[in-house]
Nucleic acid binder design. Structure first.
Ligand SMILES: [Zn+2]
Ligand SMILES: [Zn+2]
Ligand SMILES: [Zn+2]
Ligand SMILES: [Zn+2]
Lengths: 162, 162
DNA sequence: TCAGAGTTGTAATGTTATAACAAGAATTGC
DNA sequence: GCAATTCTTGTTATAACATTACAACTCTGA
């Protein structure tokens, strides 16, 4: 059960997220790009700095100074980044978050725990759940393309802070 | 592993979905209403007839003749129906579907398999997955409020039809 | 240099969801 | 019955999220 959390509130965002991103990756979803385009780099940078989920329009606002003018610039970059497996879309939030894998796990069946108090997101993988879902799909002749698993609730530190 | 599918395309929708809905239920999510309001009845009827997911605006269009004029009329009814456990929201589709439980299962951790070819949705519960998610939540001090599990892919019959 | 592919810019539009406020029904207590 | 209260509804306007369509630019490989 791999786990890692990006904590939204926490972590003074160090600038200069390593954009061009070595990409020794050999496993990525789609193609692993040798290098990101300018817009992709900027969008990925915004998500990395944030350390938590952002909506496309929030990203747009953050990139005005970099010349971004229209939502499509953001959505196009996000589409690619998701394809590359570097960013996940959170369906229940209509938002996007940089992937937080320690090092390149499965990446097909990630789960996300979203705190409704502070907005932090924890990404984790659970082999048993993956196995179970694939099992259901197999038993029901369902060709599984993608799974969405999102937990809503209150994280430990927000519960502590009564 | 309870399962039941509403098949969108299939099933000639018999009219007159039993609206007022006996409601012997004793387990529902929020309160179990003795009787639905007019708008709730109409919205639930539309979803039942459809036998598959509908967006709020599609429902609105279908209920023009019944006097519906504004999205809020639909959203308000949906909010209650979801609260009652009679309707589920599909996050990855921004749509709503009538619950298809054979008879009142857990209802807290349902999963949905959505066919991207025909739009059909199968709702199922899997105890192992539920256990696993609650386990993660317990281990991580996460107070679980709601879970979303949605599978995207191609259903058996759409695969058959090459 | 040229053709083709991929990326970008921009405007317009489409789709999904909520805020704010007034008015109408149903319920409760008297 | 008849307030007082609460819930439900109607309506307008607006916010938030996402895509279509088209033209221009850039990069790559003949
Ligand atoms: Zn990830
Ligand atoms: Zn929190
Ligand atoms: Zn259900
Ligand atoms: Zn299908």
């Amino acid at each position: 059960m791999a786990e890692h959390s990006h904590d939204h509130a926490a972590s003074g965002h160090d600038d200069a997220p390593d954009h061009d991103h070595g990409h020794d990756h050999t496993h990525d979803h789609g193609s692993a790009p040798a290098k990101l385009t300018r817009n992709q780099t900027l969008v990925y940078g915004a998500l990395s700095r944030a350390g938590g989920p952002l909506t496309a329009y929030t990203i747009l606002d953050q990139l005005r100074d970099d010349g971004f003018r229209a939502p499509l610039q953001v959505y196009r970059a996000l589409e690619k980044l998701v394809e590359f497996g570097m960013v996940h879309r959170l369906e229940s939030l209509n938002a996007f978050v940089a992937c937080s894998h320690p090092q390149c796990v499965d990446h097909e069946t990630m789960a996300f725990a979203i705190c409704e108090a502070c907005g932090s997101v924890s990404e984790f993988a659970d082999a048993a759940i993956t196995r179970q879902l694939k099992g259901w799909a197999g038993n029901n002749g369902f060709a599984l393309a993608k799974t969405t698993i999102e937990l809503r609730g209150t994280c430990r530190s927000c519960q502590a802070a009564v």
